[in-house]
Structure formats: structure tokens, C-alpha cells
């Protein structure tokens, strides 16, 4: 088998310090990381998929409740949150772009902006939750919301809190990931030849954003 050894020895000259021993070259390593991330995003979509299923089932059962309760959600806030997240996706793309062209300072700035908008979203949504709590619209055994009388109104709020709650948990995790990436970028860990952690963080952030883009019309604009 010795004659095959040479044929196998490719890519040893440009040995990137970030290359792990079990990958043959940097490109394969990055391809693997991206593929892994896409698969993970698929699991995230399916995780939410269960809730979307529950949503469509109960919306069909209680169309009146959906119409009425939706009006009681804070639409301007919802719109503001949507703009906030879409803008944060844009700054995320810019952060990766600036790392690729070697402008570390701007990249850090953009990442910070993205994280800030993420936590800003949580603040805005927290304010909405606070109001719903005051109104007595918390679901389950805490529910005593009088204004909407349609059958199934508690179910709307249960679905609303579950979907936005799971989404907010994702925004929080994404925000923490962004802060870690900001720190690592500031430390100089990433450059044009090695930026895929930023890429992966970005993919996750875009998914979180995308889920909100579905949640907003489904919940606020019935």
C-alpha cells in the first residue's frame, strides 16, 4: 500500500493553523461546518413546526377567537420589532463582509449593533408581555382576560405565548452567541481566510429573524 501514500499527501504546504487533524483541507472543514449548521437549522424549523401545526389546527377550530385576540396584540410594537430584526440581519451580513475585506473595527461595530438590536427586540417584547400580564392574558391557570369573549380565546394566548416565548428564547441564545463572536472578532480570531464561525452565527441569526417574519403576520395581522 506504500505506493498510495504519496497520492494521499495533498494540501500539506498551506497548512492552515485552524485545520483540525481529521480533515483533509480547510475547504472540506468549512463545508462540513456549514452542512452541519444547515442540518441544525432544519431541526430548528421542525421544532417550531410542531407549534405551527398547533397554530393552524386551533385557528381552524376557533377562527373568531383568532380574529378578536389578534386585534388586542400591539401591532405598532410588532411592526417595530419586525423592522428591528430585519435591520439586525442586515448588519450581520455587513459584519461578515467587513471581516472578509479586513476591516476588523467596522466588523466589531456591526456585530455589536446586531446584538444590541437582538436584545432590544427582547426588551420590546418584554414590554408587550408585561402589558398582557397586567391584562390577565397569561395562559393556563393564570388566564382571566375579560375583554375577548369568543370561544377559544385562551387557546390563542396559549399558542401566542408558546410561539413567541420559544422564539424569544432563540433570540436570547442568538444574542449571547453574537456577543461571543464580537469578543472573538475583536481579539482578531477571524480574517478573510477563516471566517466561518461568523458565517454560522449569521445563519442562525437569519433563521431566528425568518421565524419572526412568519410569526408576525400569523399572530398580529390575522
Amino acid at each position: 500500500m506504500a505506493e498510495h501514500v504519496e497520492a494521499h499527501e495533498h494540501g500539506h504546504e498551506e497548512h492552515h493553523p485552524r485545520l483540525q487533524h481529521h480533515f483533509q483541507d480547510m475547504r472540506t472543514q468549512q463545508h462540513a461546518a456549514r452542512l452541519g449548521m444547515w442540518l441544525f437549522l432544519a431541526t430548528e424549523i421542525l421544532l417550531f413546526g410542531g407549534l405551527f401545526c398547533a397554530y393552524s389546527y386551533y385557528r381552524t377550530l376557533f377562527p373568531e377567537a383568532w380574529k378578536e385576540c389578534s386585534k388586542h396584540l400591539n401591532r405598532p410594537f410588532g411592526l417595530l420589532e419586525t423592522f428591528d430584526l430585519i435591520t439586525s440581519s442586515f448588519t450581520m451580513v455587513l459584519a461578515i463582509h467587513f471581516t472578509r475585506i479586513g476591516n476588523r473595527k467596522l466588523s466589531v461595530l456591526m456585530l455589536l449593533a446586531t446584538a444590541t438590536m437582538g436584545f432590544g427586540f427582547l426588551g420590546l417584547h418584554g414590554y408587550e408581555y408585561y402589558h398582557e400580564w397586567l391584562e390577565g392574558a397569561l395562559p393556563g391557570k393564570y388566564y382571566h382576560f375579560e375583554e375577548v369573549t369568543a370561544t377559544g380565546a385562551p387557546m390563542f394566548y396559549a399558542v401566542y405565548f408558546l410561539m413567541t416565548g420559544l422564539h424569544s428564547a432563540h433570540v436570547f441564545i442568538g444574542g449571547v452567541v453574537l456577543l461571543v463572536l464580537t469578543y472573538l472578532t475583536a481579539k482578531g480570531n477571524y480574517d478573510a481566510s477563516y471566517d466561518h464561525p461568523l458565517d454560522l452565527g449569521g445563519l442562525y441569526w437569519h433563521l431566528v429573524d425568518l421565524i419572526w417574519i412568519f410569526l408576525f403576520p400569523l399572530l398580529y395581522l390575522v
Binding site: 413546526g49 410542531g50 395562559p139 393556563g140 387557546m155 396559549a158 408558546l162
Partner: peptide, 20 residues
């Protein structure tokens, strides 16, 4: 993931009575 969300909902339901 579907099992994840299902058992999570059941646990939430057991703890807080969301009623799903």
C-alpha cells in the same frame, strides 16, 4: 425535534396548565 416540542408542551402543560 417534533418529539422535543411535544414533550416540552406536555411538561409545560403539566406544570402551568396551558391547555394545549
Amino acid at each position: 425535534p417534533i418529539l422535543g416540542i411535544t414533550v416540552l408542551l406536555t411538561a409545560i402543560e403539566h406544570a402551568f396548565g396551558f391547555g394545549i
